[in-house]
């Protein structure tokens, strides 16, 4: 095990997969000469050359389509979105081509493409650069959607995404690029897509959270421990396909659920999670599922407004107390 940042773990995953499989290539804005807007692709141009690390103009629709075409004839592109918010410009290619070509062609084509980059709220990046972009993609049959929360997950899940024969939307986080953690050295270390993980064992309540919200939830759990509430935390890691059995298993153990997500709540991830919990584990629930979500507004710019819009440790704690019918402060 080596200790490295989330950014370095992603870089190592790319480097290992580029070495392992000559069909893999990286394409996007600033990925080569500039070493990546967030330095995830640092040093890759030097090692692999311009045919494998392809700098593009600012043309998300164009270079995403290029990746899809290349994938249709057997290459394995990793398309970088400088920020995942820009994937909206490429939404037609991702939804209408990447996601559906296997289906529309009756199984003739498959599209082994990874579309990756950072998403979610960061530090006062305002309305167009702070969106929790997963919501636009996990609705679409044919796409797999990953949101890794730790350096080890970032590496293991990215390697699995690159090796997958399907289109994978892989959304990182600006706020996590600098966090450090232990990462296995084995070049064949992968984490299967579609497997959730229990981040913290607990007895009284299950909190489901990923990326930045996972860390708010872990802080909340530590504080709640002192109030005598034992919190279990499940990180789905892959949002589609969702590891429903792991979540249901935790619900059957704790009987109370809070879902925390950074994005606006309406038709968000928490809506879907609370729906399948209701369908599959209604009789196990001792309280209604609570959602802690971003406010139903675009992300404001001012620091205090950003804080007001975004779920906090305190909001998660309050929700946990509510589902536990506990009268904490």
């Amino acid at each position: 095990m080596a200790v490295m940042t989330y950014r370095e773990a992603l870089n190592q995953a790319l480097r290992e997969e580029l070495r392992r499989d000559e069909r893999v290539f990286v394409i996007g804005e600033e990925v080569g000469l500039y070493d990546g807007a967030y330095k995830v692709t640092q040093g890759l141009l030097k090692e692999f050359g311009a045919k494998r690390i392809v700098d593009t103009p600012i043309a998300e629709s164009g270079f995403t389509g290029v990746g899809i075409g290349a994938a249709m004839v057997g290459l394995r592109p990793v398309v970088e979105m400088m920020t995942f918010n820009f994937a909206l410009v490429a939404l037609d290619q991702i939804v209408n081509a990447a996601a559906k070509l296997s289906y529309m062609s009756g199984g003739q084509f498959n599209v082994p493409i990874v579309i990756r980059g950072p998403g979610g709220p960061a530090h006062q990046l305002a309305a167009q650069h702070s969106q929790s972009m997963e919501v636009y993609f996990y609705h679409v049959p044919g796409l797999k959607v990953v949101r890794p929360s730790t350096p080890a997950d970032a590496k293991g899940l990215l390697k699995s995404a690159i090796r997958d024969d399907n289109p994978v939307v892989f959304i990182e986080s600006e706020t996590l690029y600098g966090i450090k953690g232990e990462v296995p050295d084995d070049p064949d270390f992968t984490i299967p897509l579609g497997q959730a993980v229990v981040r913290r064992e607990g007895r009284d309540v299950t909190v489901i959270a990923y990326t930045g919200m996972l860390y708010r939830a872990l802080e909340a759990a530590e504080a709640l421990e002192k109030e005598g509430i034992s919190v279990e935390i499940v990180d789905p890691r892959t949002l589609r396909p969702m590891d429903v059995p792991t979540i249901i298993g935790s619900v059957r153990k704790t009987h109370r659920v809070v879902v925390a997500e950074a994005g606006a709540g309406f038709a968000g991830m928490g809506s879907e999670i609370s729906a399948f919990i209701t369908e599959q584990a209604f009789d196990d629930l001792d309280a209604p599922v609570e959602r802690v979500t971003g406010a139903n507004a675009p992300m404001p710019y001012a620091k205090n407004l950003e804080r007001a819009k975004t779920p906090s440790k305190e909001k998660i704690m309050a929700a946990v107390r509510r589902v536990c019918y506990a009268n904490g402060s």
Binding site: G62, T64, G65, A70
Partner: peptide, 13 residues
């Protein structure tokens, strides 16, 4: 929308 995809197969070639 077919044109970027066509450019992709050309890049692969």
């Amino acid at each position: 929308a077919n044109l970027p995809i066509a450019v992709g197969t050309a890049l692969a070639a």
